[in-house]
Amino acid sequence: MSVPLAVPPAVSADPGPLRRLRVLAARVGAMCLVELQKLRRDQTELLTRAIQPALWLLIFGETFTRLRAIPTGPIPYLDYLAPGILAQSALFIAIFYGIQIIWERDAGVLAKLLVTPTPRAALVAGKAFAAGVRALVQALMVLVLAAILGVGLTANPLKLLAMAVALVLGSAFFCCLSIVIAGIVLSRERLMGIGQAITMPLFFGSNALYPVDLMPPWLKVLSHVNPLSYQVDALRGLLIGTPAHLGTDFAVLAVATVAAVSVASALLGRLAR
């Protein structure tokens, strides 16, 4: 008598949205760890990058606090400036991340990554959030210096956690913006030129140095479409307690980051051709 063989239940080709999300998160985390290994091998980079924000606080902040040239109400100008310099330091770290992508293309690393099962969005998001972690490490140094200078920073752990989220989102957006530019220009030299050309307008076209109310009308318009303004507004509200629109700030940063990851992922293949 023949014994019927047990037939295993059919396995769905679709692993389900939760499993896909877990796989994506695991691969993003793996890419972050790869990026952070590079940071551990070259810790002097963070120290050298911390020089510029330190000079802004020590020279620009201290001088303009004494001059009282920029009205900031009851808040000392140095306190007002510190969150803006925090955002600036994150911007300067992230905006040139596209150079690393071009280097990986020239070394053949990018082509090998693209043939793996890892989704392109995970590759981009991993680099973006690694830039955010780099920004957090540098932000710690800026915050310590600000505290030494007497800036009245919050000690609320929830606000500090929210500050970290705002820094990571802003850094991730500008990292992806750099990858988008890299996918368009395909050259390190051109990317360096464009990065240098847009960094200072992004910084001066935000509320990092002065209140929006002091801006001319055309600059106010640019400030309202500049993601850096929303990051600074969130950091300022969380760290020194100024009035802020935290819901709007985080929504803009999150939507901008998701959009930037999508566009950068679409252009990643163009870099590898």
Rank of each mutant, 00 (worst) to 15 (best):
S265G: 11
A125D: 05
A266I: 11
E104N: 12
T48H: 06
R273Q: 08
E104T: 00
W56I: 10
K220A: 12
G237T: 08
C175W: 00
D233T: 08
V225E: 13
E45N: 13
F203H: 03
M141D: 00
L161I: 09
T72Q: 14
V115N: 09
S12V: 08
G98N: 06
S187R: 07
V151Q: 01
Q196I: 13
A234I: 04
M1L: 08
R22L: 11
N226Q: 05
L143R: 10
L67T: 14
L239N: 12
T242K: 11
L58Y: 02
A208C: 06
S178D: 04
A87M: 03
L235I: 11
V28P: 07
I179R: 06
A234K: 02
I148T: 07
L33M: 14
L149Y: 02
L21M: 12
L158F: 11
A139C: 04
A166R: 00
R40L: 15
V144E: 04
P211K: 01
S229M: 12
P83W: 01
M1F: 07
F92T: 06
F250E: 01
M31V: 04
V221L: 12
A82H: 03
S262G: 03
L58W: 02
V144W: 12
L219Q: 11
G170C: 11
V142A: 09
I95N: 06
P117E: 09
A121G: 15
A254H: 07
L235M: 05
G132K: 12
L136R: 08
I95L: 15
H224I: 02
L58S: 11
L33R: 15
S223T: 15
I95C: 04
G84S: 10
Q138I: 04
D42F: 11
T63E: 01
S262Y: 14
V258L: 15
A50I: 06
E45M: 12
F92D: 01
L81N: 03
G98T: 06
P4G: 06
Q37L: 09
G241E: 13
L202I: 14
T257E: 09
V185F: 15
L209H: 06
A234Y: 01
A256Y: 14
L136I: 08
Q43L: 15
F96Y: 14
L58H: 05
A166M: 03
R41Q: 13
Y80N: 03
K220I: 11
A125P: 08
V11A: 08
P157Q: 10
T242D: 01
A122N: 10
R120V: 03
F64P: 00
I99C: 04
S223G: 15
D42N: 14
F96T: 13
P4C: 04
T65G: 15
M215D: 04
A90T: 05
M163G: 13
Q100E: 12
A128E: 08
